[in-house]
Simulated assay, not measured.
Amino acid sequence: MLKPKIAPSMLSSDFANLAMLKCGADWLHLDIMSLFTGNWGELVQRIKLKSMWPGVALKPGTNIEEVYPLLDGEDSVEMVLCMTVDPGFGGQKFMPEMMNKVHALRKKYPSLDIEVDGGLGPSTIDMAASAGANCIVAGSLVFGASDPAHVISLMRKSIENAQGVG
């Protein structure tokens, strides 16, 4: 059983108030695009040496098979982020067809942290959790809430219920 993880996205935050970890968040999510064009294994090793978790993001147009080589082997990533919107464009609707990628990853890699980001809200978190996501990224849903701790708790319960824990 994977631990449910909630990661408020810093892109939606007020940088003067990053108290989400006190509200029950597991970590703060920040996308960093790498322009690293050398050896993938070397990049993963560098990230791990800095006590960070290397991961890879799948855009909606990327085939799931392209990530498999990055998950198999000695220098594998520790997390896959399935984007449910096209990155870089705000206000998009959640693409439910991306849950097929989440389901395929969960089936092939049962202990992998699978994160879902983009257009998540009360009506889509359950769908992501049911498909196999154990990490939920939500920006405005958390940072825009009057009670972020309550929203984080609801998100965690959704994952637990989908895993049969709750």
Results as ranks from 00 to 15, higher is better:
residue 140 S to N: 14
residue 81 L to G: 01
residue 91 G to Y: 12
residue 109 Y to M: 11
residue 110 P to C: 10
residue 97 E to A: 09
residue 6 I to Y: 04
residue 144 G to N: 05
residue 127 M to F: 08
residue 114 I to E: 02
residue 106 R to A: 12
residue 143 F to D: 08
residue 44 V to R: 00
residue 23 C to E: 15
residue 161 N to V: 14
residue 116 V to E: 05
residue 143 F to I: 08
residue 135 C to I: 15
residue 65 E to S: 14
residue 115 E to A: 02
residue 24 G to D: 09
residue 68 Y to K: 14
residue 98 M to Q: 13
residue 122 P to D: 15
residue 98 M to F: 07
residue 79 M to R: 07
residue 125 I to W: 06
residue 156 R to C: 00
residue 141 L to K: 02
residue 122 P to S: 12
residue 138 A to R: 06
residue 36 F to M: 01
residue 95 M to K: 12
residue 9 S to E: 02
residue 106 R to M: 11
residue 152 I to Q: 00
residue 156 R to N: 06
residue 101 K to F: 01
residue 91 G to Q: 10
residue 101 K to R: 00
residue 95 M to G: 03
residue 160 E to D: 08
residue 83 M to A: 04
residue 158 S to D: 06
residue 132 G to D: 04
residue 63 N to L: 12
residue 59 K to D: 06
residue 16 A to H: 13
residue 41 G to V: 03
residue 14 D to M: 03
residue 90 G to C: 11
residue 5 K to Q: 10
residue 73 G to A: 09
residue 82 C to W: 09
residue 19 A to R: 12
residue 152 I to K: 07
residue 11 L to R: 00
residue 116 V to C: 10
residue 48 K to A: 08
residue 95 M to E: 05
residue 154 L to E: 13
residue 150 H to Q: 13
residue 100 N to G: 11
residue 112 L to K: 06
residue 53 W to R: 15
residue 87 P to I: 07
residue 75 D to Y: 15
residue 121 G to K: 12
residue 121 G to R: 12
residue 163 Q to F: 10
residue 65 E to N: 14
residue 165 V to I: 14
residue 92 Q to N: 05
residue 69 P to Q: 01
residue 83 M to P: 03
residue 153 S to I: 06
residue 69 P to M: 11
residue 46 R to G: 11
residue 144 G to D: 02
residue 136 I to H: 01
residue 39 N to W: 08
residue 123 S to T: 12
residue 148 P to G: 02
residue 61 G to H: 04
residue 47 I to H: 01
residue 157 K to N: 14
residue 106 R to Q: 11
residue 136 I to N: 08
residue 159 I to K: 01
residue 135 C to V: 15
residue 140 S to R: 01
residue 22 K to W: 08
residue 7 A to C: 06
residue 51 S to Y: 12
residue 160 E to Q: 15
residue 111 S to Y: 11
residue 72 D to T: 14
residue 151 V to K: 07
residue 164 G to H: 08
residue 130 S to M: 08
residue 97 E to N: 04
residue 10 M to E: 10
residue 73 G to M: 12
residue 123 S to F: 05
residue 129 A to S: 10
residue 96 P to R: 10
residue 19 A to Q: 14
residue 165 V to N: 13
